[in-house]
Design a protein around this nucleic acid. Structure first.
Lengths: 193, 193
DNA sequence: GCTGGATTTGAACGATCGTTCAAGGTATTC
DNA sequence: GAATACCTTGAACGATCGTTCAAATCCAGC
């Protein structure tokens, strides 16, 4: 029974993530969420406390899913560097058609929120840092394997890749030309060889 | 009198731009705006028609200001390429402390809005395209002067710079370390020489 | 099948949203 | 100074916001 309840909760969080990701924090009303997850206000507030509480859980869910996908990319590839490139390429091109919003949900969140929701803002920043660390770990592995120029600083390169990923996804949301996007990915990841 | 009225209108739009830029479209209420621009609802709606109408004018104001600043950077620099680099550097580092939000207002808008505000979304995309064109114009000038490798495609490079600018400003919003930002700008603009 | 605690329900709350419009004010013209 | 045209005012509208809570429902243990 615990399993079922947990499954339900995860299912609810997943559906809420889709909504928040698509419409953002402010434009998503609790009534939108009630409809999508088929729960009444009382149950939602008993489970998550508030709209902010639910949103924070969706941020965690989003980040965890992203990290899992990064691991999957690394395992599916012949090298850490190829895994990283695959992850970034997938994130940019894949999320264009399937994902709720082309944008990264964490970037969307730090873009939308202000000090009025200070802890949500801080949490999104923190999670972006976690992802950056995961990039750095893969880059260290690549360096150890000799796939990466030993003069490069993995942490600096991880920051650079974050910039590229953020920029590419934002650009892809503003521009529809697939060929241009592909060329931009090539340019952005060129320094990885 | 026409001049005064126009000045007033520009002043109103400028103040509204600051609010929308900081808080975004949905989180900014018409009452917030009434307070900041010191006008009553009737006057605002007589002047701008709707919240969307006012927001669209602030988008234009923002883009126009950005283009003017790009021109100023180009004139202040010894070359088109240096002007472009100055503009990007200024946009990333300057907007960190002074601007309402570290983010580009146009990127923030395409990040926040969905098909529910289709024309505002389209307008923000269009204005980003205008800015990209202005980048391309400067790059063509740089190419003619021989400052840019003749093998480079100015339009592709303009798209690349848009990605860098979007990514850098988003990253700067998530991360406070000035030294890291400076290094990232260096990495991002390295291809310009 | 009854009981008691946990869960779900949905009507309702006060606040705030974007917007309207009759009423009041102001400036210009004769 | 009266009349006209224009602009501003702010109370008020219906809708929707995030949230609450008494009542209804569910379900395990006896």
């Amino acid at each position: 029974m615990v399993n079922t309840a947990k499954q339900d909760r995860q299912d609810v969080i997943q559906k809420a993530t889709g909504l928040f990701w698509e419409k953002g924090f402010h434009a998503t009303s609790m009534r939108n969420i009630q409809q999508v997850i088929d729960m009444r206000p009382g149950s939602i507030y008993a489970s998550f406390g508030s709209k902010e509480g639910l949103f924070k859980e969706t941020l965690h869910h989003y980040a965890h899913t992203g990290l899992a996908r990064l691991d999957a990319c690394a395992e599916a590839s012949s090298s850490p560097l190829e895994g990283l490139k695959l992850f970034i390429t997938e994130s940019v091109t894949g999320s264009r058609k399937s994902a709720p919003s082309g944008m990264c949900m964490l970037v969307k969140t730090i873009s939308e929120l202000t000090h009025d929701n200070a802890d949500l803002l801080a949490e999104a920043k923190r999670l972006l840092g976690v992802i950056e660390e995961a990039f750095a770990v893969l880059l260290v592995q690549a360096k150890e394997r000799g796939e990466l120029d030993s003069s490069k600083d993995p942490e600096r390169l991880a920051r650079y890749l974050q910039v590229q990923l953020m920029g590419l996804r934002a650009y892809a949301r503003a521009n529809d030309d697939d060929a241009h996007i592909d060329a931009l990915i090539e340019d952005a990841l060129g320094c990885l060889g």
